[in-house]
Amino acid sequence: MDLASFDTVKSAGEGAVMEVLHPADGTVLKDDNGQPITITLMGADSEKAKRRQRAEINKRLKSGRNTKITAEEMEENGVNLLALCTLSWSGIKLDGHLLECNAENAAMIYQRMPWLREQVDTFVGDRGNFLKA
């Protein structure tokens, strides 16, 4: 077995499609045309995600030993990382309008919809989602 087939850094950077699930019953949510609502995401092992995480750690280290991070800052960092990992989506509608996929909208929707943020966070962190079967 060639370990290169398990290169999660490369495959996580290429992204994988997550179907958005209903927060209560776990069924796949559908758009107005009956198609699954999806979000294409990079994995936590992607080089882009790792660079972002390292930048946050370096920022904390440079600010000194006595610098404290608040829960709000931790949450914001997590939301921004997930927004960075969001490559595209289909069928994402909010308040009657289809949303363009960009980092600002992704951060806004993940902040506003904690159940969706949780799904995205779980998907991004699961290496199995980024390995080809």
Rank of each mutant, 00 (worst) to 15 (best):
R117F: 04
G96Y: 06
T27K: 13
E75C: 05
V9D: 12
A107N: 06
K132D: 05
G64D: 01
L81D: 03
M113D: 05
K10P: 03
T70R: 07
A16C: 08
M108S: 07
I92P: 00
A107M: 06
A106L: 06
V120Y: 01
W115L: 12
D45W: 00
D121Y: 04
E19A: 11
A106T: 05
A16H: 01
G13T: 04
K132E: 12
D25S: 13
D32A: 15
T8I: 15
I57Y: 12
D32S: 14
P36M: 09
S88P: 02
H97W: 08
L87R: 11
T86G: 05
N80K: 14
L131G: 02
D2C: 06
R112C: 09
D25R: 06
S11E: 10
D2S: 14
G64Y: 00
L87P: 03
L94N: 12
C101M: 12
Y110A: 03
Q35R: 14
P23R: 08
R65E: 09
T122G: 08
G64V: 00
E73A: 13
D45E: 15
L84M: 07
K10I: 12
A4M: 13
K62F: 04
N129L: 05
E73P: 02
M18V: 04
M113A: 10
R54Q: 15
Y110P: 00
S90T: 11
G34R: 07
R65F: 10
A49E: 03
R52D: 11
G78N: 07
V124A: 01
D121S: 14
E14W: 06
K10Q: 15
A106M: 06
M1H: 11
N80S: 11
N66Y: 10
I39V: 15
N102G: 08
N129A: 04
D95A: 12
D7K: 08
W115K: 08
E14A: 15
T86Q: 04
E47D: 14
A4V: 13
P36I: 09
L29T: 07
D45Q: 14
L81F: 07
W89N: 00
E73G: 04
E56H: 09
D121H: 10
V9L: 10
V20H: 02
L116N: 01
Q119N: 07
D7P: 03
L84K: 03
C85W: 01
K30P: 02
A55H: 11
N80P: 06
H97N: 13
G64C: 01
E118P: 00
V120M: 05
K62M: 13
I69A: 06
K50D: 07
L61G: 02
P23Q: 09
F130S: 02
M42R: 02
A12V: 03
M1I: 12
N129W: 05
D7W: 07
G125K: 15
T40I: 09
L81A: 04
R51I: 10
M42V: 03
A83V: 09
V9R: 15
A4N: 14
L116M: 13
T86Y: 03
S11A: 13
G43A: 07
K48W: 00
A83P: 03
A133V: 11
G64L: 00
G26D: 09
N80L: 08
A44L: 08
T8N: 09
M113V: 06
S5D: 15
I92K: 00
